[in-house]
């Protein structure tokens, strides 16, 4: 499949069509609620990381903005949801929307920083914003609990009906539902004319501008949407753990989510989801097997993934789709 043909297909909107493996993925994820009752906590973590990675994919994969500080929005959402739950409203969905709004607005405010400069400047500014927030979170102990973290959150049942249980069942269903809904919306966004214009900007901003597409306004919009997504992922983390640790703003989270996207492949939304599944399960499995040395093994495996899959990295979706389309039971081995 040549890139010209892919582009043509994209432009024709065929990319927006639903694939079999997408349905299969979500069915497996839903089935996991019943089939893997003892693994729901780790699956919750996968769902949250996946949503976070999807949010990064929106700007990295579609608008070509490299960010080393995406956790700024994740952490802000986590704190927003935490503070709201501690002091005002304990209902999770309200907190989710609130966190999305707060992070989205912050994304809007800081989006003007990523309009300027090249990739390297963007790396530095996004990184800087995240560092600033991390230090603010540490210093404003009266609001955030400082280095001790934000505790004393007790969530009320979801929509007043479903309580967060110790087995993590309702927590998982909640996170999965949010992930599904938000992925569907993201899908609509990237397959709309707006999404296509973003990809045009990613390929060549100057040419896009010549064609009458204003890069700035579009980047501002997608950056704010992405920030809102990350904020909601942060809110999910707060709500399922009833605690906000200062490390939600730590650098390693930005690095992890970038890694997740690299593993899964950027630019087709599901990369974040597959990446999150692989990364979390690998990390969990290795850290149980060797609590002291798992970082060595995960490092080795990640290097191997990138080395072996380097040429195919951007071609993974096509490859995946092609290999899965031939089988009757698709996506089974990729999902838990």
């Amino acid at each position: 499949m040549t890139s010209g043909k892919t582009l043509a297909l994209t432009l024709l909107g065929a990319k927006g069509r639903w694939r079999m493996w997408e349905f299969a993925l979500w069915l497996v994820a839903i089935a996991a609620t019943f089939l893997l009752p003892s693994q729901l906590l780790i699956l919750t973590e996968v769902a949250i990381l996946a949503l976070f990675a999807v949010s990064l994919d929106l700007i990295l994969g579609y608008a070509g903005i490299v960010s080393l500080g995406h956790t700024a929005f994740f952490g802000l959402g986590a704190y927003a949801a935490g503070i709201l739950a501690r002091d005002y409203v304990t209902e999770p969905v309200t907190g989710l929307v609130f966190a999305g709004l707060v992070s989205g607005l912050f994304g809007l405010a800081t989006s003007f920083l990523v309009l300027r400069g090249s990739d390297l400047t963007r790396l530095m500014t996004t990184f800087g914003v995240a560092m600033l927030l991390a230090e603010l979170g540490n210093q404003m102990a009266w609001l955030t609990g400082g280095a001790d973290g934000l505790s004393g959150i007790s969530m009320s049942p979801i929509l007043g009906l479903f309580e967060f249980d110790l087995w993590g069942r309702n927590g998982y269903i909640y996170c999965l539902a949010v992930l599904i809904v938000l992925t569907f919306i993201a899908r609509r966004i990237v397959n709309s004319p707006f999404g296509l214009s973003l990809m045009a900007i990613k390929r060549n901003p100057r040419r896009a501008a010549m064609l009458g597409i204003s890069p700035k306004r579009r980047i501002v919009v997608i950056y704010a949407i992405s920030a809102a997504y990350a904020g909601m992922a942060g809110a999910l983390l707060t709500q399922t753990t009833s605690f906000v640790s200062p490390d939600v703003l730590a650098f390693h989270r930005s690095a992890d989510v970038l890694l997740v996207l690299v593993i899964g492949g950027a630019g087709y939304l599901y990369g974040g989801i597959f990446g999150a599944i692989i990364f979390t399960l690998l990390r969990d499995w290795l850290s149980v097997a060797t609590p002291q040395y798992w970082m060595f093994w995960i490092g080795l495996i990640l290097v191997a993934i990138v080395m072996i899959g380097r040429e195919r990295l951007t071609g993974w979706p096509a490859l995946l789709a092609r290999s899965l389309r031939g089988k009757s039971e698709p996506a089974g081995k990729e999902t838990p």
Partner: peptide
């Protein structure tokens, strides 16, 4: 049963929950 949380609070929380439940 030794588990590593890498000093990350949400990991600690999940591991604690898994240890208790599973």
């Amino acid at each position: 049963v030794l588990r590593d949380d890498a000093g990350t609070a949400d990991q600690t929380r999940r591991i604690a929950q898994e240890l208790v439940v599973n």
